[in-house]
Design a protein around this nucleic acid. Structure first.
Lengths: 201, 201
DNA sequence: TAGGTTTTGTAACAAATGACACAAAAAAAG
DNA sequence: CTTTTTTTGTGTCATTTGTTACAAAACCTA
């Protein structure tokens, strides 16, 4: 499948470099991330960056796509992989909280809402990507709720869309608090009653 | 009270200039806002900016303070000025939504969570200001809830702190959606059931 | 009026920015 | 081997960045 290409082989992994770039953007923001920051984190020189990703702007958009599409540890994926709906909701919130407060490399909060959001009205293409990311998250939550309604787990009058947006929006609160460096104690404490809230109990 | 000072009088209003600077930071972010952006929006030259505000960094911190302390249209102030608790909660959410989606100058979302948050781990002093802003918002919401409990309007077992954080966090959802340029229709629709949710009904 | 004080606008500064030209290097193909 | 193709690293480019000297201007005091 991976056909051998002629010419000098690339000395770095494209996905690794892209993830490294995303972390820099996450921590410093688009304008705060200099080319030197990016190339040193990606462990490549700028000509390699330009030949593979285009320019700084294209690299930024690719980082956003990489975050939304290729993240197996995203709260959304965890939510979808847990069969029990109540546990799934809690797992979503817990994953959102954990990933926001992890701070292994300075990546506090959420890449999209804590960093990319700033550039929404300024950097070309960002606002559209944010829109679709949010609406797709809403849709995937709704889809699961509708599934549970069909199976009789949730009541037939369960307001899927309102509750999906609720879940998503609650995550933004966690994200902002984490970015501000607040301890996760109170957020951890709120988990249980928020899960019940989403379920309408 | 306003004593006449010797020397050439200042040709601009400090607060107006500060508000203009804040809008630039709000729209473009700290690193995205150049000195040229700032001085042209503030309608002053850079030497005036430096003599009055210090430097770009100090101006940024002053902008944050100005936003948190001198904003009579903030959802928090509106919440506190409405006597009826249910109307107050709704007014808070409505004000948060309106201010986030107004977009008169490109100032979508909320200055703190849509713009300042990006710089939390990078620009000195920002994270501390965010922490205190969040905790103070929580505290002011809690204070009101406790007041209503003493008056018998809210039940004595009303969980003020959880609901305060809930209100605040719901706002972050609105903020993020608005920054992404989403229409306010669905958010407007969610208002009513979210108010009931905060009240525990 | 003359002296003192503060602000203003012009201009300039060094440093950092994003981007790229170019030749050497490393592989496959003939 | 030679040729062809692609990537790598060094070095450099024109702009833009944040910041500041400096002298003229505008006010108060005496």
């Amino acid at each position: 499948m991976t056909q051998k290409k002629i010419g000098r082989p690339r000395a770095f992994d494209k996905n690794e470099a892209l993830t490294a770039a995303m972390k820099v953007f996450w921590i410093k923001g688009y304008d705060g991330a200099s080319m030197k920051d990016l190339t040193s984190a990606m462990k490549i020189n700028s000509p390699s960056l330009y030949s593979v990703f285009g320019d700084k702007h294209a690299l930024y958009l690719a980082s956003i796509d990489n975050y939304t599409k290729n993240n197996p540890a995203s709260p959304l994926v965890i939510f979808e992989s847990e069969p029990n709906i109540e546990k799934a909701i809690r797992a979503f919130m817990k994953a959102a909280l954990d990933s926001a407060t992890k701070n292994e490399f300075g990546t506090l909060g959420c890449f999209l809402s804590s960093s990319v959001a700033t550039t929404a009205g300024v950097v070309d293409g960002v606002q559209e990507k944010l829109k679709t990311a949010i609406l797709e998250a809403d849709a995937r939550l709704v889809k699961r709720f509708e599934f549970e309604k069909q199976n009789g787990v949730l009541a037939s009058d369960f307001p899927s869309e309102e509750r999906a947006r609720l879940m998503f929006d609650l995550r933004q609160g966690y994200t902002f608090r984490a970015r501000a460096g607040l301890k996760s104690d109170s957020m951890e404490n709120d988990l249980s009653f928020r899960v019940k809230m989403v379920l309408g109990e």
